[in-house]
Computed example of a mutant assay.
Amino acid sequence: MRVVTVATEHFSLPDEEATLAFAGKIGRVVAGGQILFLRGELGAGKTTFSRGLLHALGHQGKVKSPTYTLVEPYQLDGLTVYHFDLYRLRDAEELEFMGIRDYFRPDSLCLIEWPEQGMDYLPVADLDIHLTFDQQQRQLSICANTAAGATIIKAITDDEK
């Protein structure tokens, strides 16, 4: 699969609150039919980011990492968010057996942690978000691979100005 990066931006997030706030900005502009890849080492903030995004979309409860269940669904007003964690996936082909293609619908938003574990079975992400922990803060790079992803980046960077 060939991915063409449309736009890339970099941000420093000094603490957990900044990570939640930044994810909230994205949560206010995403829509159904979109896919976000969340990359980073253990503890980089992928689940924290997911929590901020889900809360911005109106989810009131806890957000847990779906490390053992592979996917946690969140039914929100007019949108189903599927939060995947593929860290423990033994074989990418397991995604085919669980019906992975059925999750990518116009009325769903898919957040996928550890997408590299299932790359041959996943479509191109609208946004590819990479979190790293640098001393006392997180660094976030966000790449748009589609026009929808570029629209999201434009909306959040215009908001920063």
Rank of each mutant, 00 (worst) to 15 (best):
K161Y: 05
Y82M: 13
A147V: 11
L122F: 03
Q75V: 10
A147T: 05
T5V: 13
Y74W: 12
L109D: 00
E160D: 13
Y103N: 11
V71Y: 05
K62I: 12
A21G: 07
W114L: 06
G61N: 04
I112Q: 01
L140A: 13
T132G: 07
C110M: 11
I35M: 06
V30C: 03
D102C: 08
D85M: 12
W114C: 12
A21F: 05
V63W: 02
C143F: 10
G99R: 14
D15I: 09
E9L: 12
D91N: 09
P106N: 06
A92Y: 02
A125K: 02
A18S: 09
G27S: 09
S50R: 08
L109M: 10
E17R: 04
H59A: 11
T157G: 00
G52W: 01
A148N: 08
T132R: 15
K46S: 02
D77M: 04
G149Q: 04
Q117Y: 05
Y68S: 12
I100T: 13
L36A: 07
F133Q: 14
G78L: 13
M119D: 14
E93W: 10
I142G: 02
Q135C: 13
I152Y: 01
Y68F: 15
Q75I: 06
F22A: 02
A144E: 00
T47R: 12
F97P: 02
E9P: 02
G118H: 02
L20C: 09
V81S: 15
H10A: 13
L54E: 00
G24S: 05
G43E: 05
I35K: 08
L38H: 01
T8R: 13
G118D: 03
T8M: 06
A56W: 03
A18D: 13
L38Y: 01
